[in-house]
Design a binder for these strands. Structure first.
Lengths: 386, 386
DNA sequence: TTCTGGACTTGAAACGTTTGAATAGTGTAG
DNA sequence: CTACACTATTCAAACGTTTCAAGTCCAGAA
């Protein structure tokens, strides 16, 4: 018996296609396929028949129609400032992990560090009726206009990588101050006294607290940093420009007459740039100069020497933020309890091979050759499993 | 005058909210806000009023309702095998670039290299009524069952990074054979004769053609590769495991008595692992041994020495695939012209600092750039530690 | 006065689902 | 024979849009 095909407007198999094939009503089929409680009362044979037909036809329920009807999309919008930045990837993974058990789906949008894309992306997310929004924005994120719209539509929002609690947005980020101090302390404890610092660009939120932390740690240790050895990256255009910045600044600093035995870089890409710059000037890392980064992104782990760095728990940040958002969604009716202070996660020192005691200056410190002096407990360099 | 708020079931501002606020019908508001041709006939003042109100209330059209009605979602599903692999990121960027001008939206799903996620992700994409699907799968991708469903629903599909034309799926990938040859030729032209090769894992599609290309190039140059210097990576569990694989294989090869002056690695992460392994055995790159990778992912560019590699035009692959898909969507009615042979893109040699002529055997080649501990040329030396 | 016709606005159906209420069919008890 | 309680299935309304056909005005023409 040939099933009459009414005009197919779209290529998709619909509920009524299945119903027609089964000689049943749409309702019946829906009840069975959506596992509604009523389906228990249906004849087992019918259920079987429906399932088989659906499978045969390759039926997939239309999420649009379904969500329209049930007014729940099970979707969370994720707005990443730039997926090309290795920073974002682990955060997104963490979010995914948080979402999965709750059967939520992530709507990932990449703003590609373009101001205008930011607003339009947020618009997309709103239009797609995400029930909540997670913004990943360690990077510039000039107060998108649409943030107000998000509120108007009562969509809870959280942010990862930046403190926006002043605007009553729950924020999850690493404790940059502690991280800066941690990096500085590591260098100091290795014996470095002449430490160069490459601060982040001024327009970047993280720059200030990291620098403050480093300064604080230096002061604690009774160390005065030479202002001529403190430089800043220029404001960035794209997330990977830190590499060139670090490389050039390192070379400039060497050209100046100031001496230093270690460089504390703003982030990993900058640090890798420094390593390159030092190398180009004929200096070995870590024998002649130590370098420490910040973030612990993949390239830090797989370069040689492995880069000593301060690790941000990116994955955890992502999943904690997600957790928080999901909880807010539960108590949707009550005003979402917007935390008034940021959730700061502890950074972790990852010692690899780019840091070592300073070269012996006067005293004859035996063989500054290939021996990578084991600094601290010397964790084995593994790629970050974020 | 207070606008009476009927019970808000969802937090979202809807068309009828705006209509009520304007004292107009839903139709009118819809016509204006969706820029329908009819809106030209409406009083300018009315239009103005509607726009203002919509803006004030923070109205965003419901993509679900809209798509349901218009039966077009303007969405393309993108299924990436693993976003943690730096390989995927540029491809996705390329896709994004292709999609944007056509006003299409990407629905990005990350399968996280988990077999079961693959099918369920494809299901998600189907349910969200993507009009087409792009699969990024250089990585294992064991013939998802749902691929059949994609066809049943008449959703065009293309694949990036793997040849699936035998299953009549348009495929976009780099010319692996040419790439393998290119890498080999580079090493040969530098003067290397004893070249070690680390092949990819057997379960990975790219492995075979790259190896064949390398072999072919060697044969062309009258070079016989020592079988004992040809090893394979173990089958992988996660995308970054190539690093450890390369590192261990490099150390093993050095431990064996075979000599070599260059390593042709399957991909960049493997190559970076090799660099690490060589270094741990006291060898300098490129002075004692050259290393070449494949892919040109970010870590290859920012490590020191910069990794010489064969670049895949990932971004281009992404945008070409998108182009092709969009064209197929245009002529939706006619059978999508599934190409019968893969579109192979030319790789590009990127020469950085990890490749150089082989060390002079007897003569004293004083490497000018060599700041590394002088460890005997080309043969094993004392490992720095452990 | 009624008609014509433009200018402006609205009614109602449809998209594919879900779901509470309603219907037919079938025994079984009163 | 009616009433009742099942069981198995269907009706119909709703979700927020879009869009075509059909209003309502009101001025000017017949």
């Amino acid at each position: 018996m040939v099933i009459k095909r009414t005009k197919r407007k779209t290529g998709h198999v619909t509920l009524s296609d299945v119903a027609r094939a089964c000689q049943l009503s749409v309702s019946t089929v829906s009840i069975v396929l959506s596992q509604a409680p009523l389906s228990q009362r249906l004849a087992a044979t019918t259920r079987e028949r429906i399932h088989a037909t659906a499978l045969r036809l390759g039926y997939h329920p239309d999420a649009y129609a379904r969500s329209l009807r049930s007014r729940s999309t099970k979707t969370v919008g994720v707005l990443a400032y730039d997926m090309s930045d290795p920073f974002c990837v682990p955060v997104v993974r963490g979010i995914e992990e948080g979402l999965q058990p709750a059967d939520y789906f992530s709507l990932l949008v990449d703003a590609q560090t373009e101001r205008k894309l930011f607003d339009s992306s947020l618009g997309m997310i709103l239009e797609r009726r995400a029930e909540g929004v997670i913004v990943i924005a360690s990077w510039v994120f000039e107060e998108a206009n649409l943030l107000a719209d998000v509120k108007k539509n009562h969509v809870p929002i959280v942010i990862v990588g930046r403190d926006l609690t002043e605007r009553r947005i729950p924020s999850f980020l690493v404790d940059n101050h502690a991280g800066g101090a941690m990096a500085m302390n590591h260098l100091i404890s290795l014996g470095h006294r002449r430490i160069a610092v490459i601060r982040g660009p001024d327009d970047l939120f993280d720059s200030q607290p990291r620098w403050a932390g480093a300064q604080h740690a230096a002061a604690q240790a009774g160390l005065r940093l030479d202002p001529r050895l403190v430089v800043s990256l220029p404001n960035r255009v794209d997330p990977t420009s830190g590499f060139d910045g670090g490389r050039l600044l390192a070379r400039e600093m060497i050209s100046s007459t100031r001496e230093f035995t270690a460089v504390l870089a703003f982030d990993d890409l900058t640090a890798l740039g420094v390593v390159r710059g030092l190398r180009e000037e004929g200096l070995r890392v870590p024998e002649d100069c130590s370098v420490i980064g910040f973030d612990d992104i993949l390239p830090a782990a797989v370069s040689t020497p492995g880069l000593t760095t301060v690790r941000q728990p990116l994955r955890t940040m992502g999943s904690l933020a997600t957790q928080h958002l999901l909880e807010a969604l539960q108590q949707s009716s009550q005003e979402s309890v917007s935390a008034t202070n940021p959730r700061m996660l502890a950074p972790e020192l990852v010692v690899r091979d780019s840091s070592a005691p300073p070269p012996a200056r006067r005293r004859d410190r035996s063989a500054p050759t290939s021996q990578h002096p084991a600094a601290g407990p010397a964790r084995r360099a593994k790629p970050p499993r974020q």
